[in-house]
Amino acid sequence: MYLDRGLLLAVALTVILFPGIESWMFADPEHWYRPFIVWGAVIAGVYWNQRRRNFDEL
């Protein structure tokens, strides 16, 4: 079975870092957009991970 190692690393990092990130996201009500910044960062990471593989795996 093929499992993307980058994905596994990302999941592991998320589990480890999530408490800190969560407190940062909701620490200041004035900065209501912080969750979107984190979300955007995740998307960028996935984009970077996907563009390395350009073959049709199906």
Binding site: W32, G40, N54
Partner: peptide
């Protein structure tokens, strides 16, 4: 129409949903 599109969707759809969620508040 192309299985490779799913790779684009794996980051493209979350991006679209982010843009969709942003205006709510």
């Amino acid at each position: 129409s192309d299985s490779r599109h799913l790779r684009a969707a794996s980051w493209g759809l979350p991006l679209y949903l982010l843009l969709l969620a942003l205006p709510v508040l």
